[in-house]
């Protein structure tokens, strides 16, 4: 299981679930950003990383992945509360997008100051904007994304299993959505599989006051306050190659570690996104 390499013949699928509830307006630790802004920034970064990984020749991306980002909470496009694709611009409303299409259609390209002193500003493509409002319909998000993941897995039976990463700061507010609670929706999602194994569901719980009590890739929920145990329970164990990757980028990780971060700061979120989306593409 989890040994299939990504190729254009057998592309992968990465789906992000992005909490856009009202509480995401809180400031993230000592940064100048809200949780919504920080999560959107890291999401745009990881989309860019996926494009780096998939760049065959300059100016082009290989179709190594289909990517989706589903926002839950406020729906900036449709209005009101619910779940919708968080892509904007020409990709608005698109559920799963092949990487070449993603590459060609950012909402905008922004200039940001370079971390290197004296260097010119970087031009950064943006695919997902920050948004916040309403409650936290996480079950509906898993259900909506799950329907797309199911269809994708059915049409890519020999690919690496879909990877779903849920970024949230709150408690689920729609337990019982269509008669099932979050555990049941998550289980349904993880029951979707390819010949290389079941789908992987990873979770990141953001804290507006992360300080030093963040936990990354734990192998037990011991000592975690709510909703830590609930999110730990619905987080998949890291496959061996992701365990190796996690160790390789300097994390302390034990056997049985799960794709889960609790009380995460932006660095932790970036780490989980990096480890959780790095799959062998050297085909």
């Amino acid at each position: 299981m989890y040994e299939r390499e990504i190729s254009r013949t057998n592309p992968g699928c990465v789906v992000f679930l992005l909490d856009r509830s009202d509480s995401m307006k809180q400031q993230w630790g000592n940064s100048q950003e809200t949780l919504a802004q920080g999560a959107a920034r890291e999401l745009n970064n990881i989309l860019l990383e996926l494009l780096f990984t998939s760049q065959g020749e300059p100016g082009k991306a290989r179709h190594y992945f289909d990517v989706g980002v589903f926002g839950y909470g406020i729906r900036p496009m449709a209005g009101g509360e619910g779940v919708e694709s968080a892509f904007g611009g020409r990709l608005a409303g698109h559920a799963l997008v092949p990487l070449p299409e993603l590459r060609d259609n950012p909402i905008t390209v922004r200039e940001v100051a370079s971390p290197d002193a004296g260097a010119p500003p970087s031009r950064v493509p943006i695919w997902v904007e920050a948004a916040h409002g309403y409650k936290t319909p996480m079950c509906q998000a898993v259900a909506v994304a799950g329907a797309h993941v199911y269809q994708w897995a059915a049409s890519h039976p020999d690919s690496f299993p879909p990877i779903i990463i849920n970024i949230t700061d709150g408690l689920v507010t729609d337990n019982g959505y269509e008669g099932a609670n979050l555990d049941e929706w998550a289980q349904r999602l993880m029951n979707i599989q390819t010949s290389d194994g079941p789908s992987l569901l990873f979770n990141v719980f953001l804290s507006p006051t992360p300080m030093s009590n963040g936990v990354l890739f734990p192998n037990s929920d011991r000592g975690l306050p709510p909703p830590g145990p609930d999110l730990f329970r619905i987080s998949s164990p890291l496959p061996p190659m992701m365990l190796s990757n996690a160790i390789g980028v300097g994390n302390y990780v034990e056997q049985g570690a799960r794709g889960f971060a609790f009380n995460a700061d932006s660095k932790m979120l970036a780490r989980l996104l990096e480890v959780g989306t790095r799959v062998g593409v050297r085909d």
Binding site: L48, F52, Q55, P58, G59, S122, R123
Partner: peptide
Amino acid sequence: GPQSNDAIDEQMWRDV
């Protein structure tokens, strides 16, 4: 320099 004026090319050329 990078092959084009494309923002993603520029980033990858510089960062990667």
